[in-house]
Design a protein around this nucleic acid. Sequence first.
DNA 1: CAGTTATATCGATGGATGTCAACATAGACG
DNA 2: CGTCTATGTTGACATCCATCGATATAACTG
Lengths: 117, 117
Amino acid sequence: MSALELTPVETVACCSPLMSSTPMSTDQAERIVPLLKALADPVRIRLLSLVAAREGREACVCDLSDAFELSQPTISHHLKVLHEVGLLDRTKRGTWVYYSIRTEALADLGALIGGGL
Amino acid sequence: MSALELTPVETVACCSPLMSSTPMSTDQAERIVPLLKALADPVRIRLLSLVAAREGREACVCDLSDAFELSQPTISHHLKVLHEVGLLDRTKRGTWVYYSIRTEALADLGALIGGGL
DNA sequence: CAGTTATATCGATGGATGTCAACATAGACG
DNA sequence: CGTCTATGTTGACATCCATCGATATAACTG
């Protein structure tokens, strides 16, 4: 992704909070939905939670895949989805890849939902 | 649904907030995911937002369906999904059916996500 | 370089889901 | 009762997506 493109997280952050006086536009809805779709999977939300529970809120793939009875490509796929919408950061250190929580992304989304949309 | 069964919203509320020290269990994930799936659709999140923006946070179906270029059965289907997971309440008054926001359901979910999972 | 380990990509497949047309239900009104 | 309007249900269809096996890439090791 180029530096000029925004992940769904970034576009959501710049527009929230939506006040309850006016309903969400179609555009706004279509920016938020990819984030929610990324969260709306039992494996992905557990992956996110596993990373969040770790020291420094980051974990390498090898640590995460042990928690599931799923193939390695499947875990890799789910991590990619979470990364692409901006909920996880990705860093390669040597042979290992570390994913870390983008805390403010989750906070923005939580505020948007909890704030009554 | 019988009075003894809990909607996803109710089961989520009784278990949150999840602290970041321990990761979410598989059971917890599977209670939260139906809520997120219900939210993760552009039509449904706009429906929710339209209801939330209305006086008393409630609206009848006829008001809502005008905002979409979708068939009436499709709108009815989406409202049913939101109702079944406990995000919308349903009341019939005469010929019309009114859906209203379950504010604390959205608040609980928002807190769960924004609280770092 | 060859071998081993960690992670990602590709292609295929079965199941979930959004949408519609047709029909059903249910209340209001004459 | 008959009709009109509002809403829900059903069944079919097309598309999306989670998963896998096979393969690719990339880095460490000897």
